[in-house]
């Protein structure tokens, strides 16, 4: 690969995160659980990559791994050409400021005993050691940026509404002037009207500051609104990757198609004709088979014998399926 093509921005190659698997009371040596296996993507500056998958798909792990909040087993995390995966904690410090995480549950992400002002000012104290006065000034500026009023400064998190809380955590994440935000389901706990406001705000901030987003969500509609490219994860593996529009109009992987079919569409209609495929979480994976084999409605014998590699469907569209869907399952 030519590294000079995307030297600014984030480029992840062959990223794997493995945990020692625990079985019963004892631990079987050498047994590992692959939370992420060989994940790669490119996120150019100022763009958004949507990471889609269900709980357990590894999407949150991916977000944490990119920020080095979870140990990386293999792979490279290239940030402006520097491999973050190999840096020591000390060398990583300057990069940490450039990349921030916005947590799924804003309430959990704030110390309930601290005032909003202190919460927003915490990174300013930790990263820059600003004095009290400067911190307050900056906190006010950050609050304004996310459309909140300064009267909130003295309040506690529990006195805020869900939408306000999420904007406070966003303000805090912006405190160190990051260039990349990892957004972990930032709108999933919000009412639709608040979700719209947060999504619009994220778009505006991206335009203003040239931020890059890694937007993690199981809500395809939210992802479709904000992301230029999509990455579909299933059991820690990339199923499909490509431009949002192409991927949603013509999903090539049966899993992507299933996610789309389950998505509550804006088109009214009684119970859907095609019931969502049954997920059986207790099944053990078949070694050597496609990870989606047991769930797939279109699986053929070959899918059991051999796991498909990510292959190009052209135009930047990758899919890990032996029989990528040809029917145009457009939602209309």
């Amino acid at each position: 690969m030519r590294e000079d093509v995307v030297s600014s921005g984030l480029r992840v190659e062959g990223l794997s995160v493995e945990y020692a698997a625990k079985r019963g009371l004892g631990r079987t040596r050498g047994d590992t659980h692959k939370a992420l296996a060989d994940v790669g993507f490119i996120l150019p500056t100022g763009q958004t990559l949507g990471v889609v998958g269900e709980s357990g798909s590894g999407k949150t792990t991916l977000g944490h791994a990119v920020l080095r909040m979870t140990p990386v087993s293999r792979g490279r995390i290239l940030w402006d050409g520097v491999d973050l995966a190999t840096l020591s904690d000390r060398d990583l410090r300057p990069y940490r400021r450039q990349m921030q995480l916005v947590f799924q549950d804003p309430y959990e992400a704030m110390n309930p005993r601290m005032s909003i002002g202190r919460i927003i000012a915490e990174p300013l104290l930790l990263a820059y050691g600003l004095d009290r006065h400067a911190r307050r000034e900056q906190a006010l500026r950050l609050l304004k940026q996310v459309g909140l009023d300064e009267s909130l400064l003295g309040r506690r998190p529990r006195a805020l509404s869900g939408g306000q809380r999420q904007r406070v955590t966003l303000a805090r994440a912006l405190a160190t002037a990051p260039r990349l935000l990892v957004l972990d389901e930032p709108t999933s706990g919000l009412d639709v009207s608040l979700q719209a406001r947060v999504l619009n705000l994220l778009r505006d901030l991206q335009t203003d500051k040239g931020l890059s987003y890694l937007f993690i969500s199981h809500d395809l509609a939210a992802v479709a609104y904000i992301a230029q490219r999509l990455l579909v994860l299933f059991q820690g593996r990339v199923m499909e990757q490509g431009p949002t529009d192409a991927l949603l109009r013509h999903p090539a992987h049966p899993y992507t198609a299933a996610l789309l079919a389950a998505q509550p569409s804006a088109v009214p209609g009684r119970a859907p004709k095609d019931p969502a495929p049954a997920m059986n979480p207790v099944a053990d994976p078949v070694p050597g088979a496609c990870v989606y084999y047991q769930w797939c409605g279109k699986a053929l014998p070959r899918c059991r014998m051999e796991a498909p590699d990510l292959t190009s469907l052209g135009a930047d569209h990758l899919v890990a399926c032996h029989y990528p869907g040809h029917e145009t399952t457009s939602i209309h």
Partner: peptide, 23 residues
């Protein structure tokens, strides 16, 4: 109507989502 228009669609229309001002 505001509730309906606040919901993003698939595929995205490209326009901004309608917000409901205030609380």
């Amino acid at each position: 109507r505001a509730l309906r228009d606040a919901i993003p669609t698939i595929p995205a229309t490209g326009g901004r989502l309608t917000e409901i001002p205030g609380q």
